[in-house]
Simulated assay, not measured.
Amino acid sequence: MDWWPVALVVVLAMGFTYTNGFHDAANAIATSVTTRALTPRIALGLGAVMNLLGAFAGMRVAETIGSDIVVVPTGATGIVLCVGALVGATGWNLLTWWRGLPSSSTHALVGGLGGAALAAGASVQWGSVRDKVAIPMVVSPVVGVVGGFLVMTAILWIFRRASPGPTARGFRYAQTVSAAAMAFGHGMQDATKTAGVVALALVAAGHQPADDPSVPLWVIALSAVVLSLGSAAGGWRIMRTLGRGIIHLDPPQGFAAEATAASVLYVATATGAPISTTHAITAAITGVGATRSAKAVRWGVARSIVLAWVLTFPGAGLAAALVYGLLSPLT
């Protein structure tokens, strides 16, 4: 098959990656901006650079998306499957961004792949989806809530006799490190996922063996650059939801949330699990806020976010299936 169908998938994949960047930029920087640890301009720049660097450490996640979610058919059917998945996931990203809801770009992409594969009659590797997507999807927010609560509890105990002013200033400086760690983890996870879809397109077009799970370095590099550009564009609607909608954070709380979420991302990446950076940071913020009191958390906002999470798989999957159906006459 010619290269132009693959080029089309690359363009769509980079479009999704760009929306992922500005959709999820808030994940890494919202807490640092709202606690005034970093200015928005500095935070966005830091996030963009660390996203770029983190992308090259997430190859295992790319291989999971590229070989463990669906068995892509060869020829035009496989290309249209990839197109449907990307268009469906991008549409869901734009919808939730417009509504200001921090939904999961990861699960939008996996849902899009699943929906397009079912519409195409292709094989979905349900066992792998269960082990590498569904179980981490449930476990990572739980770990985030518990971890955020424990880290914040430890901070409160360690600094219980410290002067509030110097302590807050110290944690503002510490948030530069924790925000950078969070952005690096976002790059490890999110820049590599669409690279996995491009690898699927290469297999479908016959330019890469089906039993080769590797993702070309040029695809990772391109995804990294585009994700960084999207992150630099910012995601102010979602930033307001994460930074102020769930709970108003102070610098120690912001540091605890970012450090917890970054740790969750690193462990997941090491196992090749494509988890949601949105899940990780939102859960960590909720756990941190609960140390103040259960009433301090705005549970109505949290419920809206959970609803967006629940709807992401079927919403993106249905959109991808519809796109595949419209384009199926081309196969």
Rank of each mutant, 00 (worst) to 15 (best):
I79E: 01
V129D: 01
T34S: 13
T331K: 11
Q253A: 13
C82M: 08
R36L: 06
V70G: 03
V33F: 05
K295Q: 15
A179N: 09
V219E: 04
I79S: 00
T241E: 01
I285K: 05
Y173E: 07
S276F: 01
G66Y: 05
A284C: 08
P136V: 05
A302G: 08
F159V: 10
G58T: 11
G165L: 13
V110W: 00
A122Y: 11
N93F: 02
L322E: 05
G84C: 09
A320I: 11
V306G: 00
G287R: 07
V203F: 05
T167V: 15
A85S: 14
A76D: 13
H248A: 13
V110M: 05
P40M: 09
G170W: 12
A57R: 10
R169K: 14
A319T: 06
W218M: 08
W157K: 14
T192V: 14
A28C: 09
W218Q: 10
A62C: 10
I281H: 04
W92D: 00
V226H: 04
A210W: 08
C82L: 04
R36D: 10
R237A: 02
W98H: 13
A25Y: 04
T269P: 01
L12T: 06
L46W: 09
G165T: 12
G114D: 01
G235N: 00
Y324E: 02
A154F: 13
W236I: 05
L242W: 02
G21F: 04
Q253I: 04
S163Y: 08
A224R: 07
A233L: 07
G45C: 06
A273N: 15
Q208L: 15
R172S: 14
W126D: 07
T312V: 01
V264K: 10
S103W: 00
L200N: 02
A296V: 10
W236A: 06
G300I: 02
G45L: 04
V143E: 06
R161W: 14
V139E: 10
L150C: 11
V203W: 07
L113E: 05
T286Q: 05
A57I: 00
G230E: 02
I281A: 01
A290H: 07
G287Q: 06
W126L: 14
V9C: 03
D211H: 13
T64Q: 09
V203H: 06
H207D: 13
V267H: 09
L307P: 04
I238G: 00
V6T: 15
A43W: 08
S103Q: 02
F184R: 07
L46F: 04
A308H: 07
I155W: 08
T277M: 02
